[in-house]
């Protein structure tokens, strides 16, 4: 395929972002839309900052349910990311490395949660894992496990919505990776599992980290599927986005504070991760 010619320069670009050899006048055709795009993404954030009730910020943040919701959000998003890594990386490998009939269809199906309105995703989860759902009925009868209205349910909802982000980026990384290393390992007698573990995984590690970061961010902001599938109860299933939505009903200022907390925490974590992992060699 195209791997031998196209991946080498692409990888070099990854390594030195912003230090390309091409210099000269910046073309307006690209610069203007780029700045417009940046403004479009950042302005709403500025709106939140401007309208934030700074004088009462301290007292609002000290409210126990804020910290409770934040803790729950961080824990569930991290657990959901772990679930996605465990299931999503092998799934991405399957899609990128194994030829099987219907692969295109499977790839399209994997992206369904991206297209589905999250609330519909939540209803779909209820129909499968709910008390009267196809699998849920059996889970309750056999193990006495019910997922809706539990913290585990939050993790399930978040993982469902966030997994495609991981699968797509890992699959992309796998397709861009130089397959000659894997071929060499195979000629030296390594089994497929050993190749996956010793060659493929280290090779696509940056792609996996990038995918995990995206996946985590999506899980952290998850609202629709969570409130539909897991409901809303403080300390058990009320994550930050749910707390923000309900605060908006009565106290828009409290909602702004909660949004800022969520944004600050996620920006700090994502910025820290990007420097350390995502752009690293």
């Amino acid at each position: 395929m195209t791997t031998t010619t196209s991946t080498a320069p692409a990888r070099r670009r990854d390594r030195d972002p912003g230090q390309g050899a091409v210099t000269g006048r910046l073309p307006w055709v690209l610069l203007v839309p780029a700045l417009l795009g940046l403004g479009f993404l950042v302005l709403p954030l500025a709106g939140l900052l401007v309208r934030a009730p700074w004088s009462t910020l301290g007292t609002r943040l000290a409210e126990p349910q804020v910290l409770e919701a934040l803790r729950l959000s961080l824990v569930t998003a991290t657990l959901a990311t772990a679930v996605c890594l465990l299931l999503g990386v092998p799934l991405a490998w399957l899609l990128a490395r194994v030829t099987f009939p219907g692969r295109r269809l499977v790839r399209a199906l994997v992206t369904v949660p991206l297209v589905l309105p999250p609330v519909v995703g939540g209803v779909a989860l209820l129909l499968v894992f709910g008390r009267r759902g196809l699998a849920g009925q059996w889970l309750e009868a056999a193990f006495g496990i019910t997922l809706p209205f539990t913290t585990v349910g939050v993790v399930v909802a978040e993982a469902f919505v966030a997994m495609p982000f991981l699968v797509i980026s890992v699959e992309g990384a796998l397709r861009a990776a130089d397959q000659r290393f894997e071929e060499a390992a195979a000629t030296l007698g390594a089994s497929r599992l050993v190749i996956f573990r010793r060659v493929t995984l280290p090779l696509v590690a940056p792609g996996i980290v990038a995918g995990a970061v995206l996946c985590w961010a999506r899980a952290l902001g998850e609202f629709g599927a969570t409130i539909t599938f897991a409901g809303n109860f403080p300390g058990r299933t009320q994550t930050m986005p749910l707390a923000v939505y309900l605060a908006l009903e009565t106290e828009p200022e409290a909602a702004i504070v909660l949004s800022l907390v969520l944004l600050a925490v996620s920006v700090i974590i994502l910025a820290g991760l990007r420097d350390r992992w995502v752009t690293a060699p």
Binding site: P148, I227, T228, G231, N232, F233, Q238, Y245, L246
Partner: peptide, 11 residues
């Protein structure tokens, strides 16, 4: 002790 506090009456 409810299991959930829903966001509106339809939910």
């Amino acid at each position: 002790k409810p299991v959930t506090l829903e966001q509106d009456v339809k939910a």
